[in-house]
């Protein structure tokens, strides 16, 4: 096997990569990068869902009173800002501008999670708004009619149905986040790019590291897609099946 790989140039690259990856412990930074990627994307999405749901709710609340109007104005600004600028720019702004101005010091990973969460919140809010819009208004009316407040009806009746409708889109948002984590390196977080770049720099050879990096991203994304499909099927079943328990 080794001899076969030695016999052509790309094979020799693979061997070099293998050496740094296994013998020099390059896999450790790759695992660390992978861990960070997953942490940023998962926590980012969770924060995004919370923020997005809140914003979407603010945007569908009836607006006769002042408070909902002010909140709605803030929500539009928020969504406009986070959708109107690239993630890298937001990350740099928070890490190198807002935080020093506010005298805050947090680890880069924490900042990444927070910025990804806020960014995702803006996108999720739009997705969620569509999801809420797709739920029959009669559901909210029935909730109000039995004496639940707007918020309770939203939480117990409308949002669960909305989430179900938007699950595939949320899956896509998660995939986007996974891919976007590659900008975490801009503030010095060890991510997949940094890890493979380090291996490449060691060997003066980038072909194999970057190919492997692409492969890891693809595998991640395929796994998530499969997971989303599985969840969709289970949720669809709750509609049709006879019993819950």
């Amino acid at each position: 096997m080794n001899e076969l790989l030695q016999s052509f140039e790309f094979g020799r690259y693979i061997l070099k990569f293998h050496k740094v990856f296994v013998d020099y412990g390059g896999y450790k930074s790759v695992l660390l990068g992978l861990r960070n990627t997953v942490i940023i994307a998962v926590l980012g999405l969770l924060i995004g869902i919370v923020i997005g749901t809140l914003i979407a709710t603010v945007r569908v609340v009836p607006k006769y009173r002042l408070l909902p109007r002010i909140l709605n104005g803030f929500a539009s600004f928020y969504v406009g800002f986070f959708r109107g600028t690239p993630m890298v720019v937001q990350l740099l702004l928070f890490y190198y501008v807002f935080m020093p101005l506010a005298g805050l010091h947090y680890p880069a990973l924490t900042v990444c999670v927070v910025v990804f969460g806020m960014n995702s919140g803006a996108y999720v809010s739009e997705i969620m708004r569509g999801g809420i819009g797709s739920v029959d208004p009669g559901q909210m009316e029935a909730g109000r009619a039995v004496g639940l407040s707007f918020g309770k009806s939203m939480l117990r009746i409308v949002i669960p149905q909305a989430v179900k409708n938007i699950l595939p889109t949320l899956g896509n948002e998660f995939i986007t986040l996974i891919k976007e984590t590659s900008v975490a390196s801009f503030v010095g977080t060890m991510d997949l790019y940094v890890a493979f770049n380090y291996i490449g720099t060691n060997n003066y050879e980038f072909m194999v590291p970057y190919l492997v990096m692409a492969l890891i991203y693809i595998v991640l994304v395929l796994m998530i897609s499969a997971l989303v499909r599985l969840m969709e099927r289970r949720l669809a079943r709750s509609d049709r099946n006879q019993t819950t328990h």
């Binding site: 029959d136 009669g138 559901q139 009316e141 029935a142 909730g143 009619a145 039995v146 117990r156 009746i157 669960p160 149905q161 179900k164 709750s238 509609d239």
Partner: peptide, 12 residues
Amino acid sequence: GMVFQQFNLFNN
């Protein structure tokens, strides 16, 4: 109590 033409049972 209110009863609607379209029933409006909570689907979830």
